[in-house]
């Protein structure tokens, strides 16, 4: 499980996270909702190991192992996956090569056997079929010329192939129409199970209609100001963040 304790972080000496406490037990999906500038993306980047953010205090452990201080690739091998709000384009890097390199790097780090090209393609095609995505997704360069929806679906494909144990979805719903949103949600739901946890970060409640969380946390001003069940998302939608943030202050 993911346990975050009194986590503080800054970017360019400006404090963004001001003491986050959060637990996501194994097998649960938690949502983090909050207004713009509340620190949602910072939290996801800090957990994934982005260097631009300075962790100034606290801890974040996954299955008892301290994540902070690990290289991003070590976190990935441990099973942590960040689905990007803005997936990065990699011109000149084919999607199949990218996915196989990533999968084999993780397997190598875990002491598992690598997949050869044939084994990998068989597995990747099966996942594509399951996600109702076209085969040419593998042939294209990573995210290059992809629409916003295709980029997010590619994140889901990566998740399906890499099989993380903790997925952090950073505003995966932004820029998606309702059909794309459903496909993404179905992809995430398909991974749900006793060995999969997720932190779904979103500004809007609508994604949570499709990925129903076990718990909802409200992030405002760099702190978790409220936690509750899925009904909290509906309350937020009705009342707005300003009200809730003021109440918590």
């Amino acid at each position: 499980m993911l346990r975050i304790e009194n986590l503080t972080a800054s970017i360019a000496d400006k404090p963004i996270l001001k003491g986050i406490d959060l637990e996501v037990p194994q097998g649960e999906v938690h949502a983090i909702m909050g207004p713009n500038g509340s620190g949602k993306s910072t939290l996801s980047y800090v957990l994934a190991g982005r260097e631009d953010y300075e962790v100034t205090g606290g801890s974040a452990t996954f299955d008892g192992r301290e994540l902070l201080g690990m290289e991003p690739e070590e976190r990935a091998a441990l099973g942590v996956f960040l689905a990007f709000q803005y997936p990065v384009e990699l011109p000149g890097v084919g999607n199949a090569n990218f996915l196989r390199t990533a999968l084999n790097a993780q397997r190598r780090a875990r002491g598992e056997a690598e997949l050869d090209a044939v084994q990998f393609l068989k597995m990747a095609r099966a996942e594509l079929k399951r996600l109702a995505m076209p085969d040419d997704m593998l042939k294209r360069n990573v995210n290059v010329g992809f629409s916003g929806g295709e980029k997010k679906r590619n994140e889901v494909l990566q998740m399906a192939i890499l099989r993380p144990r903790l997925a952090i979805l950073d505003e995966t719903d932004s820029g998606l129409d309702i059909d794309a949103l459903k496909i993404v949600a179905e992809g995430v739901n398909a991974l749900r199970g006793p060995d999969f946890s997720a932190l779904v970060i979103t500004h809007y409640q609508r994604l949570l209609e499709h990925i129903v969380p076990d718990r909802v946390h409200v992030l405002a001003g760099g702190r978790i100001v409220r936690s509750g069940g899925p009904e909290l998302a509906h309350e937020l939608e009705a009342r707005g963040y300003a009200d809730m943030a003021a109440e918590a202050a």
Binding site: A77, F81, V93, F98, T101, Q106
Partner: peptide
């Protein structure tokens, strides 16, 4: 960073980007 979050070690990630 994107490559590394997918588990590709930094040296390998750099090599991939140079090749690309």
């Amino acid at each position: 960073f994107y490559l590394r979050t997918r588990g590709v070690p930094e040296i390998e990630a750099r090599a991939m980007l140079v090749r690309a």
